Structures are given as structure tokens and as C-alpha cells.
Simulated scan of single mutants.
Amino acid sequence: MAAAAAAAAAAAVLEPWRAAARRKRRSAARRPGQREAAARGAEGDPEADSAAVLRRIREAGEDLLLSDFWSSALETINRCLRKHQEQLKALVGTLSEALGNLHLDSLPHEPDVACDYIPGETGETLVTGACPLKCVCYGIGNFATCVIARNQLTFLLLFLEKCQVRRSHCCVYDPLFSQVEIAVLNALGVTVLGENEEGKRSICDEPTIFYMLHCGTALYNNLLWSNWSVDALSKMVIIGNSFRGLEERLLTRILQKNYSYIAKISQGLEELEFPQTSQYVDIFNDISVHWFPVQKLKQLPVDTWAFQEEPDYQDCEDLEIIRNKTEDPSATD
């Protein structure tokens, strides 16, 4: 009964978003403040049930779709994905036809997850696409009780829809997820990982988008290490903290010592900054879309790829990630 109710609530979360996007923009100015106030009042209860959390996600989606930020941020991502798509077509000829379906459109019907169905603009069921893109989301935070985290999750759900990435092909993990949040994510149809990977995930030759907003620097460094080759990096896109910003904030010696993979890749990527708006300034600040052009990767010194030692961060102060204690009992948060 509870699972069925959660699934029904999850389906209701996403259906009103398109209708909200077609409303007159004048109504949008009144809702965000009211919604934020209501959310803050409800968030005092850490045991908020799934239905309440799903309702807040729906409301956040309605507001996001009405914002100028959504359209401009989506265009920023699309500019990067179009270049990345062309690169994948050139690298792997067999993917050309499949990647031709990658565009900002509606999510195809996914029959194996009941709550995944989202009707198209005309109400017709869309044909299931063959887009091979995967998505991995790290560090989204406690979206049941945090407005910032909830808006970041909402953006992810809308992004998956628009770029035709099945939600079942999106893996999500945060070591701080509550049981309510895990239940909500399961109801929404995404795949909740059961282990803290510390960002050490190999894409295994599958084109993958990593959605990692405001994550610790070590998480990005671990991800690069796990895919430290021209072939793997060229198939990746990272939506997360600006690598350019990381370089500007960290001392060069600290960056090279503790986060050597970020330091080495700086000349092998292209970065597009997210737009900045006052409405979402604390939610999507310092975020960029990163991709790795093959031409740039091949121009890096040959010895760049020779060093592949796993990062350990033993002497690293202020490590901003939660370690996997099952592998490292001595690690501290």
C-alpha cells in the first residue's frame, strides 16, 4: 500500500510541470516566496513523509520551469552536449544513430517503472529512445529538509527528461540520505546506489554525465583518476563546481599535491559556466558544464597519462567528502 501510494505520488510530481511552464509568467513572481515560507515551516519535521516531499519537489519544478534561469541553464548544457555528441559520433560510429536522438525533448516512455511515465505535450506516449547516455549524481544532499538540495534534485529530474536520459539509467548517492529520501528516489524511478564510491566510478566505456553540484574537490579528483585515459574522459561530461574556480581558490602547491588529476586536466577540457540569477544564486552558484575534447586531451604531454596512482589524501586538511568507512575504518568525516 505504501509503495503504491509513493508511486502514485511520484507520478503526480512530474505531470503538472509542463502545464506550469505554459502559465502566464506574471503568476510566477508570487509563488516562490510563498512556497519557500511553507517549505521552511514544514522542514522542521525530519520525519516528513514521502508524499509531502514529493509535493515539494513538484512545486519546486513548477517554479523552476517558470524561471529565466531554467531556459538559459538548459541552453548552456545543450551547447556542451551538442559538441560532446559530435565527438562521440566521430569516436564510435555505431553510436551515431542512437546519439542522433539526443536533443532537448520529452523523455520516452519507460514501461518498467510505473511512475516514470510523463505524457508529451500532446498527451501521446513517446517512443522509447535508444540514447545510451548514463547519468550519475553525487552529493545532492538532504532534499527532504533543504530547499537548496531539493531545487538541485528538481533540476536533475527535469534535465533527465529534456535530454532523454531514462531515470532508471541515473544513479544517485549521498551518504546522508534518510530512509524517507531513499523511498522518494525509488518512487521517482532513479537508481539509488547502496555504497559510498567516493566518486571512484569508471564509466566502463558508456557515455556518462556526472551531476555533482557543490561536491568536495576530492570527489572530482577521484572521478578523474578512475577514468584517467583519453578514451574514458572523452566520453564524460561533468556538471559541477567550476574547475577554473577550483584552480583560482586553491594554492598551486595544494592543488598539485592533493588534487593532482584536477591540476593535470586543466588544459584538456572546455568549461561553460551556468548563468547566474538572483533567484537561484545560492543553489547553482559556481557551477559549470565540463567536457573533454579529444584534440585537447591528445595535446597534453605524454607523461600526463603515465601517472595513475590512486589518491589517498592522508596529509590533506579539510577534506570535504565523507569517506567509505567500510574500506577505511580509520577515515573521519
Score class of each variant (00 low, 15 high):
241 N>M: 01
129 G>R: 09
273 E>L: 11
19 A>G: 04
114 A>F: 08
234 S>D: 02
208 T>M: 10
207 P>A: 08
2 A>C: 09
53 V>E: 00
270 E>G: 00
59 E>L: 11
96 S>V: 05
268 G>R: 12
287 I>R: 05
246 L>R: 11
171 C>T: 11
167 R>T: 02
22 R>G: 00
248 E>N: 14
3 A>I: 10
221 N>E: 00
154 T>G: 01
292 F>P: 00
299 Q>P: 03
153 L>Y: 01
217 T>L: 11
37 A>T: 09
173 Y>E: 01
332 T>E: 14
105 D>H: 13
109 H>S: 15
161 E>L: 10
100 G>M: 01
165 V>C: 04
127 V>D: 10
209 I>G: 04
216 G>F: 03
307 F>V: 07
292 F>S: 03
200 K>I: 07
85 Q>K: 14
24 K>Q: 14
176 L>V: 11
299 Q>S: 14
112 D>E: 15
144 A>L: 12
42 A>S: 13
140 I>D: 06
10 A>N: 01
49 D>R: 10
46 P>S: 06
188 L>A: 06
254 I>P: 05
137 C>P: 00
326 T>V: 12
243 F>G: 04
302 V>C: 09
152 Q>T: 01
250 L>G: 03
277 T>F: 05
56 R>V: 13
7 A>P: 07
167 R>Q: 06
70 W>F: 09
185 L>H: 02
153 L>C: 03
116 D>A: 15
2 A>W: 08
316 C>V: 02
295 Q>N: 08
263 A>V: 07
193 L>A: 13
26 R>G: 09
253 R>M: 06
256 Q>L: 12
203 I>G: 08
230 V>I: 14
164 Q>F: 04
84 H>L: 06
